[in-house]
Design a protein around this nucleic acid. Structure first.
Lengths: 339, 339
DNA sequence: TAAAAAAACGAAAACGTTTTCGGATACTAA
DNA sequence: TTAGTATCCGAAAACGTTTTCGTTTTTTTA
């Protein structure tokens, strides 16, 4: 059972490899008759072009790379979903790598993708990525690059993001409008721009509405997860600050806090309102359901690939491409954890 | 900025391409001196082998394919995590495709992976996959194949699974041991083996413990999700069967049911016990926390790739490979939704 | 019918690597 | 010295495709 090649078909038909190749790709300088003959023979033998050879010749792999901090994560897996769906539609396959929020790994993986000669790269940065030389290297290799969600403004490439600051502002304002007078913030790690922006949005909202910002109401959730939320809530209770509202950096942290409150007989939202961020599936399934900010992961994935493809097309055509930044809409989702 | 090739290095050093290639791969018939020279030059020029050429020559892509019903899914994303981690460790990249539980898509994607000439394929079947010709085709192309979780016994290939029937038996027995006398089952779709096995385990447990099986206590959760769980629970209430326990096919369905109960003042576990399946993250975050069966997704992913690699190695060495089936351990996790 | 134009085909190079196998050089033993 | 043996190197083929460009064949035009 030997592999079927152009040569095989050519020999069977007594014509040249060149003509076979051209016939299959509908070149104008092959007669209709020959084309038909070739195509028939190709079908009969179940001819499939050898992608390895095609790649080598065309210098294209029809494959793109995706580096993501975490796969087991509602938001990111939604993004993945959007990306691979859109990519497949356009004939591209997606190689997925997970940086585990580690800059070292991320750097290695970028190298990997470059040496794999993917046609484009999409990336959401690890928390501790500050050095961006590996990203610039991508550009040096002239590989189209799109960053999404967790980006670095220093890299001159297309970006798909939400307005974290505005969204956090909206969330906080929502708490204020619902009557909260003393609002704590469970913030994320210090480095990533998202955490910073959400923090700033929170702060701005307080100031704009006559509430004084109090740094002792900021609780750190390094990993922005359930456990962090629990820890922060316990600390909050111990501090006894009489807080009547919490804006948490993620739904996970918010849920962690809510379970602690439940365990201690603190009522949500009667005693304290809780606002999350991301609208993970989980937030609608718990009781009380969690008010939050809707962050459109699936759409972000699709848009990310679409933008990448635009750039890949431009590159192929030898055209210049001006990096674009798209900001996706978020919205406040009112549920039962707020008044 | 031309690409650096072996030829480039060879010319710089005044030696042949052959020697350069061999030097870089530490062939024994190249002198230490030349090797050092070549390696130095390669490093200086930042030489990276052209994978396209390597692929063509070696007929290997160092890439494997993964087809999965759904990415946004706690269990499957855990599997993905395990697979890509293990793969990367061994120098393989993973192309991920999503079948969306559609046989048609799954078939197309198998074709895609075959024509991409991946070195191996891992797959978890779509719900409506009954025809297995596309899977046999993989074998015909002599591409190593491993199926996991949702498998078909008819395909002669390695498999990584859990014992769904036993696990369901354990879950049901747990409900019985905790005092439940009338246990309903929220089952999954009719086709997939998992649903069937979980149903059978449930049934067997009842029979083994002196409870009569009653088909009117079986509620269908076609998509095994939150909404299905809600619907089934509402129906159950309407039917007024005085059920005191539920074994749900997934945690999602179980959580859906629990929220309905909560909305209607039915206490879990006092009025009714609920048992889930999978141990998704969510099950520990809700209140009351959900008792469930632990299904080790991450481990399943790692084992799946490991087995695939074994087969790929055997193939490369020209050795025969006997398909293996590995059954992973599950365990009952006792939480607050059961007595 | 000859010349010009159009249509159809194919030889060959190229993509960059790996690997076989024969040849050259240097070294050892008699 | 010669023969034999390591040691080192390189020519060339191969992987299967794409594409340029020149050649041949057919058709059209005068």
């Amino acid at each position: 059972m030997k592999e079927v090649t152009l040569k095989q078909i050519a020999e069977n038909l007594g014509i040249s490899v060149t003509t076979v190749s051209k016939a299959l790709k509908n070149y104008p300088d092959v007669s209709k008759k020959t084309k038909a003959l070739v195509k028939e023979e190709a079908k009969k033998l179940h001819y499939k072009p050898n992608v390895f050879a095609v790649n080598l010749r065309t210098k294209e792999s029809k494959t793109v790379g995706l580096i993501i901090p975490e796969v087991v994560h509602h938001f990111f897996s939604s993004v993945i979903n959007g990306i691979i769906e859109e990519a497949e539609r356009k004939g591209y396959l997606v190689i997925i790598l997970q940086s585990n929020e580690s800059y070292q790994l991320e750097k290695k993986q970028v190298d990997l993708l470059i040496s794999k000669r993917v046609d484009g790269i999409m990336i959401s940065l690890a928390n501790d990525t500050v050095d961006i030389s590996h990203l610039l290297e991508i550009k040096e290799h002239e590989i189209p690059l799109v960053m999404f969600d967790k980006i670095s403004k220093l890299v001159p490439c297309s970006k798909i993001i939400i307005n974290d600051r505005q969204a956090a502002y909206d969330a906080t304002k929502f708490l204020i409008d619902s009557g909260c007078k003393k609002i704590a913030h469970f913030r994320g790690a210090l480095l990533p721009q998202n955490s910073i922006d959400r923090f700033l949005g929170y702060k701005k909202a307080l100031e704009d509405h006559g509430l004084t910002y109090d740094s002792s109401l900021i609780y750190m959730c390094e990993r922005v997860d359930y456990e962090d939320g629990r820890r922060a809530a316990l600390q909050l209770m111990k501090d006894n600050k009489e807080v009547d509202g919490i804006f948490a950096v993620t739904d996970m942290a918010a849920v962690g806090a809510m379970t602690v409150f439940k365990e201690h007989g603190i009522k949500v939202p009667e005693d304290i309102s809780v606002m999350g961020f991301s609208n993970w599936f989980l937030s609608q399934a718990i009781t009380p359901s969690l008010s939050t900010i809707d962050q459109p992961g699936y759409e972000m994935g699709r848009k990310t690939f679409k933008l990448l493809r635009k750039e890949m097309k431009a590159k192929k055509a030898g055209l210049a491409f001006e990096p674009q930044t798209k900001i996706l809409e978020t919205s406040v989702i009112k549920r039962d954890s707020t008044k």
